[in-house]
């Protein structure tokens, strides 16, 4: 099962305001790119040699921010009421 298929099962109330931003300057000389392996929703994707990030499928776990040793990720939860809404949990 692909990650997009899995995420499509969840209810998301996506906010227009972005809750996580990545400073791609920092990514350039980040060799290991830990965020790629830390994110359980594949929100970080390597395109050629740079990282692209999309917040829409974010499961709000917080892994990326802990994983990123360069401090390139500014992280918070979405505004109250927005983001993922689990039905089962």
């Amino acid at each position: 099962m692909k990650v997009e298929e899995k995420l499509a099962l969840n209810k998301f109330d996506v906010d227009k305001e972005v809750h996580i931003t990545v400073n791609e300057e920092g990514c350039r000389d980040c060799e290991l790119k830990p965020c790629l392996y830390a994110c359980p929703a594949d929100c970080f994707v390597l395109r050629e040699d740079h990282i692209t990030f999309s917040y829409e499928g974010c499961l709000e776990c917080g892994s990326c921010q802990i994983a990123c040793a360069k401090g390139a990720i500014s992280w918070t939860y979405p505004r109250g009421g927005f983001g993922v809404c689990y039905q089962y949990g």
Binding site: L7, G62, Q87
Partner: peptide
């Protein structure tokens, strides 16, 4: 049938 996917620390 998978009906939900979730993650947490």
């Amino acid at each position: 049938q998978t009906v939900e996917y979730s993650a947490h620390l």
